[in-house]
Amino acid sequence: MSSWSRFTETFFNGPVMARYLPDILAGVVVTIELAALVVVTGIVAGLVLALLRSLGVRPLTWLIVGVVDLFRSLPPLVVIVLVYFGLPSIELSPSGFVSTWLSLALVLMAFSEEIFWAGITSVPKGQWEAARSTGLSFRQALLSVVLPQALRLTIPPLTNRTIAITKGTALGTVVAVTEILGQASSAMSNSYNPSPLMLGAAAYLVLFFPVVVAGRWIETRFAWKR
């Protein structure tokens, strides 16, 4: 047997792939559900925190910065394990799926808050002044003038961070979430062959490549001539 055919036999074994494809596809569905929930709740929560922070109420700002710095420092895996094994001690027993969702959403919230905040503060002060001088309230100036400009600046870093954290859905494996990686690794141990892992890798590519391309498209779509 040539070394090439040994390689394909090991990593791209047709019968093994065919046998475990349905499991991987089921994992894809779980990953999509999990990722969508994480992205939506994480980004919305991050935006809400950034808007609250813009009010400039000192104790509130300190609280937000504290929470954000905490979740930016902790490895997502640690957060997942803490939530999954820690919450039962206060009479809450979230499933592995919910634990992973909650943990990754908190981490994405923390990073996206910082990104939104950086965007809001990078809008020149003159924009606020022009808006307020025409009689717009703080809220109107924020929502109509500052935020649209801030959001445009946040799209590239936000896309990167979102993709990085969403790939963290694979960490759900440790709390028995049957997402792509979980399915692939159990298939791998059942078949004594790493081909399912290649299938899993392909599934991640198919899932995330369009997201990366979409991010690039949004970036150009929302650019305006300065």
Binding site: E129, G135, S144, Q149, R152
Partner: peptide, 27 residues
């Protein structure tokens, strides 16, 4: 009250994401 006091700035401070008309009509 600020509606009665127009202000023009050294650096224009137009809203870059709106058309000229959009800038004028916002307030």
């Amino acid at each position: 009250a600020r509606q009665r006091i127009g202000m023009v700035f050294q650096s224009f401070n137009l809203y870059p994401h709106m058309t000229a008309l959009g800038n004028v009509t916002l307030a």
